[in-house]
Amino acid sequence: MMAPMPDMRSDPEDRRQMLRMRTACLVEGGTLILLLFVAVPLKHFAGFPDAVKAMGPIHGFAFLTYLWMLIRMVSAGGWSQGETIKLFAAALLPFGAFFSARTLTRRAALASTR
């Protein structure tokens, strides 16, 4: 993981943004886990397709919200291309959100100490 860019000014808004981003990341990851490991088995093994019908749009909305927040955060500067790709790729993988949450927690801590 690359170090944060040194020219970023200390800013409490940075810390708030990282923490909001971490929440969005965990919600996105949580809904993905629910979709893949609860709703999909319920559909295929218990004949209950409504679980996927309900969780699908919820996860879709959570994913789009996370993606939008990621684009906004990266456009504001201070994130390398590698970090951006990791944060995006982790959203596509089950449990990947926990790795991203750790990165965001670290950055939030750095933002509050700068």
Binding site: R9, E13, L64, L67, I71, R72, S75, A76, G77
Partner: peptide
């Protein structure tokens, strides 16, 4: 989705300009 992404870029750019 493209418009949403563009909005995110504009919003982030404004934040960068503020700093």
């Amino acid at each position: 989705v493209a418009l949403s992404g563009l909005h995110g870029m504009l919003s982030g750019t404004l934040r960068k300009l503020a700093r």
